[in-house]
Design a binder for these strands. Structure first.
Lengths: 357, 357
DNA sequence: TTGAAAGCGCTAACAT
DNA sequence: ATGTTAGCGCTTTCAA
């Protein structure tokens, strides 16, 4: 009866009061330093000792207190993911990729929305690391392209990595895709279907990466000997609705385009919707192409020809590179470029001879 | 000239070596305890002292080290958001809502994907808090409905809150919406348009919250004196594609439904797509309703009649309630129910007399 | 209103 | 191979 009580009370203790490294050390009959060695997988521990310590750890259900580890080692083992108003899908893919690398290397991930127009942004981010909330930051577009932020981080020594920056500096760490080449390719695809009046819908002006896509478009036109016309370029805001109004604008012109390449899928889906409303059939009367291969690309009718960027992989690489920098003294890998690829679906087709003139 | 040098070197110091509470204390000529009081806004500090300390803080650009605060106070001021394979949009809304409350109350947010089928899930989550990686966890569906997890957290004293649990226990903290009532309402809407053969597409079987939606559907049928028919219920998996195949299944039956209510928008969009492929016009030949009011609801053609759940608000309340529990001794608010509401768009219409028979 | 001293639970430098 | 001794930078008694 007494025995029973004692056991119960011991059980309760191990539930309520957490075991510390000292408890483990005394139970195993070693010093705390040895426990520390075992916990951290460091060398110079005899096999027998290691075993004894592990048993003690097991018995006490010991888990090292992270705050103490962090304070003593002056590291948080946390990465912060910074973003400003991304699409849900983009963020989801980025976050998943970053998390993969974090989990694989024992880091936690903090999510931190920002405002890229905030003048105190740099201070905010630097403090994040300064206070020990994180060891380094992952920057996503459009934050990857805030010059003042990047240079401040660099100057203050806050570890960072840029995801898909438009302007790719030699001396900063970043990860990107071959998006310009893919834009060239998708435009070239339209050209090869016989299209000559190919319109382009720009993305949100604050997202410099969107400009890269226009570069590919223009390069492909030039390559095909088609002169670039301002009248065939409309400004969008990345949203479905902005795609609708840009399409309306473009299609009501004198010589309307026979193909429209929108800088992202949402806007391209808006184009299809606008075309439907005007009684145009896609792709018979109008070819439409998007960019990103988001879920919406297979949910429009017809499904969108688009470009798939390996966003998740890009984010995974980004976090890996950042962590490698944090975990090792020497400067490791600095940048990485991942292939984007054209995906042809039913929204693009041979140009309609009648419309072509 | 010397002065210049000295200033520059001071500047550099404050950039490189972070000031600690001791530096502030000696500069202000007070004890570190007083600095601590000022930093934490505690009472019992003379106004003049407070001012002197603040000036010192300013001059040294002092930021309290979080790891030290956390270790000493045995609190991390971090919440963990747990999720298992949610849709990008759902996660985005939840995360935004939780972040609002976190930011408002000085908490950071950790994101932590889980596997709800993992037998060690409870240990994993308990350790999260046990190790001091977070002070409490926010559970999203389907994790909100893992009984073993909930009871283990409760037993071990790991603070948690459930978002949208299907089974709503009196003694656990949770936040939910009036989703059953909204399902009733949307079904009733179809009935009032003259529909009698109203099909239902179930959501993913692991998401018990989806079952709630079926309850509302059945209650509305009963209320209208329509007998429930198994033949008019198909199983989906929450995805667009599963909506397509469920619709194909339902529409090829002998007495096909004149209306289909899918448990979420993605599946409803799949229904519209399938209907298009079969040459059926929506809503003339088939009324379609969804649930959630995700972006896709306004991007289908015609746009979806659906239910808007204030997911973001729900998540915000959840985090607020959890933080209140963490920050105060006494048991504060335990649960909250937020209104969901019907949104009628063009995908539902009067039943086609010919089809009705 | 203020402060001294004792931790919080670990890591790191330096013995042994 | 193992232990000793200082911290890391705060919060928390408990005095004054």
């Amino acid at each position: 009866m007494f025995a029973d009580l004692r056991i119960r009370s011991l059980k309760k203790m191990s539930e309520i009061k957490k075991a510390t490294i000292n408890d483990v050390a005394s139970l195993a009959g070693v010093s705390i330093k040895t426990v520390s060695r075992v916990v951290n997988g460091l060398p110079n521990v005899a096999e027998a000792t290691r075993k004894r310590v592990n048993i003690a750890i097991e018995r006490l259900n010991f888990r090292p207190n992270l705050s103490a580890q962090r304070l003593a080692s002056r590291r948080s083992y946390i990465l912060a993911l910074l973003y400003d108003n991304p699409s849900a899908n983009y963020l989801f893919n980025i976050q998943s990729g970053v998390l993969e690398s974090c989990n694989a290397r024992g880091y936690d991930l903090l999510v931190h929305p920002c405002d890229h127009t905030n003048p105190d942004l740099a201070d905010e981010v630097i403090n994040l690391q300064h206070q020990g909330r994180c060891d380094g930051v992952v920057l996503t577009p459009p934050l990857s392209d805030v010059r003042g932020l990047i240079s401040a981080l660099d100057k203050k020594g806050t570890p960072f990595i840029q995801i898909a920056p438009a302007d790719r500096q030699e001396n900063y760490p970043w990860v990107a895709t071959t998006d310009e080449a893919a834009s060239f390719e998708i435009t070239h695809h339209l050209v090869s279907l016989g299209h000559r009046r190919i319109a382009f819908i720009r993305g949100h002006p604050d997202h410099k990466a969107m400009a890269t896509r226009e570069n590919g478009y223009r390069r492909a036109l030039k390559d095909a000997g088609i002169s670039y016309s301002r009248k065939l370029v409309a400004q969008g805001q990345n949203s479905f609705e902005s795609g609708v109004s840009a399409a309306n604008q473009l299609l009501k012109k004198q010589d309307p385009p026979t193909a429209i390449f929108a800088a992202n899928d949402d806007m391209a889906a808006g184009v299809i919707s606008a075309a439907n409303d005007m009684g145009l059939q896609v792709p018979k009367d109008l070819s439409v192409a998007g960019f990103d291969d988001t879920p919406i690309a297979t949910q429009t009718w017809p499904a969108l020809t688009t470009v798939r960027q390996p966003i998740r992989e890009m984010a995974q690489s980004a976090a890996r590179i950042l962590i490698e920098r944090l975990d090792s003294q020497d400067k490791p890998q600095l940048k990485e470029i991942i292939d984007a690829r054209l995906i042809v679906r039913l929204s693009t087709g041979t140009v309609n001879a009648v419309l072509r003139q």
